[in-house]
Simulated assay, not measured.
Amino acid sequence: QMMTARYYQYNKTKSNVTSGGLGTMGFALPAAIGAKFGVPDKPVVAIIGDGGFQMTLQELGTILQSKVDVKIIILNNRFLGMVRQWQQMFFEKRYSFTNMVSPDFVALAKSYSIQAAKIEIREDLKENLLKMLNHNGPYLLEVMVAKEENVFPMMTTGASVSEVRLN
């Protein structure tokens, strides 16, 4: 949610479904499925962290059963990203229970008859995004990202808006 809000260049109004919270884990995939039912003629892409996806990966069964044409992008940094960012910035990288061990998301998607691919090299991203977007049917694209990739701006506890962190 935070990466999408920060970096996606929206060109249409009412085109982003968000929980509006601070990265509410588990929201993206069920919301994308609901959005696709609401606008079946428009492409719907869920952009999810690896931890958030693991919270609702059972919805792959809903996609299989209902034949919902949802595209899924997992940004996999092998951490619970936002919590890890706080631990990095304010607790001297004393990471506690934020490291993620994930299943093989591509194999998991394929077990639900969903086409899937994994990207580990940035140069392969554009080609695979186009392949995903042009695919007729659901598709899962796992994108490996740096373990300590942070999202800014961020507000710290007890800070005012004028004290927003930009890096």
Results as ranks from 00 to 15, higher is better:
2 M>L: 15
3 M>K: 03
3 M>A: 13
5 A>R: 14
6 R>C: 14
11 N>R: 08
11 N>M: 00
12 K>D: 06
13 T>V: 08
14 K>N: 14
15 S>T: 01
17 V>K: 08
19 S>K: 07
21 G>C: 13
22 L>C: 15
22 L>N: 15
24 T>R: 11
24 T>S: 13
24 T>Y: 13
26 G>T: 11
29 L>Q: 05
31 A>C: 07
34 G>I: 06
35 A>E: 03
35 A>M: 07
38 G>L: 05
40 P>K: 10
41 D>T: 11
43 P>T: 12
44 V>H: 11
48 I>S: 07
48 I>Q: 12
48 I>E: 12
50 D>P: 03
50 D>E: 01
50 D>M: 01
50 D>F: 02
51 G>H: 05
52 G>S: 13
52 G>H: 04
54 Q>N: 03
55 M>Q: 07
56 T>E: 07
57 L>Q: 11
59 E>Y: 05
59 E>V: 07
60 L>Q: 09
60 L>G: 10
62 T>W: 08
62 T>L: 06
63 I>R: 04
63 I>G: 03
68 V>H: 09
71 K>V: 02
72 I>H: 02
73 I>N: 02
75 L>Y: 10
75 L>I: 10
75 L>Q: 10
76 N>W: 02
78 R>E: 02
80 L>M: 07
81 G>R: 04
85 Q>L: 02
87 Q>A: 02
88 Q>N: 10
92 E>C: 06
92 E>H: 15
93 K>G: 01
93 K>R: 09
93 K>N: 08
95 Y>M: 03
98 T>N: 07
98 T>A: 03
102 S>P: 01
104 D>K: 06
106 V>K: 09
107 A>V: 02
109 A>D: 00
110 K>V: 01
111 S>G: 12
111 S>R: 08
112 Y>I: 03
114 I>A: 05
114 I>Q: 06
116 A>G: 05
117 A>D: 14
118 K>I: 15
118 K>P: 10
120 E>V: 14
124 D>G: 06
127 E>L: 13
130 L>P: 00
135 H>T: 09
137 G>S: 04
141 L>E: 07
142 E>V: 02
143 V>W: 06
145 V>W: 02
145 V>D: 02
148 E>F: 02
148 E>V: 00
149 E>R: 08
150 N>C: 06
150 N>V: 02
150 N>A: 05
151 V>S: 09
152 F>G: 08
152 F>D: 07
153 P>S: 14
154 M>F: 15
157 T>Y: 11
157 T>A: 12
158 G>P: 08
160 S>V: 10
162 S>L: 02
163 E>M: 09
164 V>G: 05
165 R>C: 13
166 L>K: 08
167 N>S: 13
